[in-house]
Simulated assay, not measured.
Amino acid sequence: MKRSVGQILGRTGIRIPLILWTIAVLYPIFWMFIGSFKSNAEIYRNPWGFPETWNFQNFVDAWTNYNIDTSVFNSLLVTLIGAVLTLVLAIPTAYAIERINFRGSKVLFTVYVSAMMIPMVLGWIPLFFLLSDLNLLDNIFGLAIVYAVSQLPFSIFVLTSFMSTIPKSLEESAAMDGITPYGTLWKIITPLTMSGIITVTIMNAIQFWNEYFMALIFLQSQENYTLALAIDYISNEAQYSNAWGTLFAGLVIAIVPVIILYAIFQRRIAKGMTEGAIKG
């Protein structure tokens, strides 16, 4: 009996802080969601309650008057290009470091891992001048290249962990059958590390979709704004025009795709990170 009471108290002591933390995280999102369907007058009159009438005009205003449609397209484009480019660069690099014996492979891997510890803010000024010299400043493709390079260390670190779990006998058998190293990489190694590739792609895509500071520095024209910059623009406008409902609607448009994406692939992400942590 004492043991069962102790177990109940122990579980309760763990669950209560988790429940409180969940409420603290979800309530602002819930408040933002219901605020996106209110008029400005109703937001001031009843900020914490449900809307009297569910008004979709805020979404229309955000989509048309503040060019959220263009910003969504820009964010989709930079996220897609950045995620694909990261994989194109990270998969062969991770394979070379993990599976090909050459002098300096361990040093190179250490350099990539160490790069994860360097704050990205230290590279913003040099990158600004570099993109300016390459005529890629205020360019969606230039921003996508910066995103891809910034996530290379993390992607290589995760993918090398997955590749280390694949038996080398498979590569030896493929070599005996006449398959080239490139064929081994794309026909054998890549399919077997698909869980890691999906995990890396999703986490990078979420990072690119939500990124703000580099987009703020490297993009200057409003027609090139990503969604994060468009939300910031609406936020500044809301201070003078009281367009709080429009701001909430823009925030909902920004976070709903991320929530849906993570909800769909949550188990795969957790499984991928767990498998990647097991070597041998």
Rank of each mutant, 00 (worst) to 15 (best):
T274N: 12
G142W: 15
L85W: 06
W209N: 02
P126E: 12
A228E: 05
E171W: 00
E171A: 02
A83E: 07
G35Y: 09
F109R: 08
S241A: 14
T93Y: 05
L261D: 05
T184Y: 03
N55Q: 09
I197G: 05
D232N: 14
I264N: 10
W21R: 01
N210E: 10
L18Y: 06
E171I: 08
A230D: 07
I189F: 11
G104T: 04
R11K: 14
V60A: 13
L108H: 07
T110Q: 12
W186A: 09
N204W: 00
G82A: 11
I217N: 03
A215L: 05
T165L: 03
K38P: 03
V200E: 04
N101M: 07
W186E: 09
S155R: 00
I188P: 00
F162D: 14
L77F: 14
M214F: 12
K106Y: 03
W186R: 08
L192E: 10
A205S: 14
T193W: 00
I23K: 04
I34A: 10
T64A: 09
S36C: 00
P153G: 12
S155Q: 01
A148Y: 03
T190L: 14
G6V: 11
I145T: 06
E98N: 10
E211C: 05
L131P: 03
Q222Y: 13
I16L: 10
L229Q: 14
N210A: 11
S241E: 08
L77I: 11
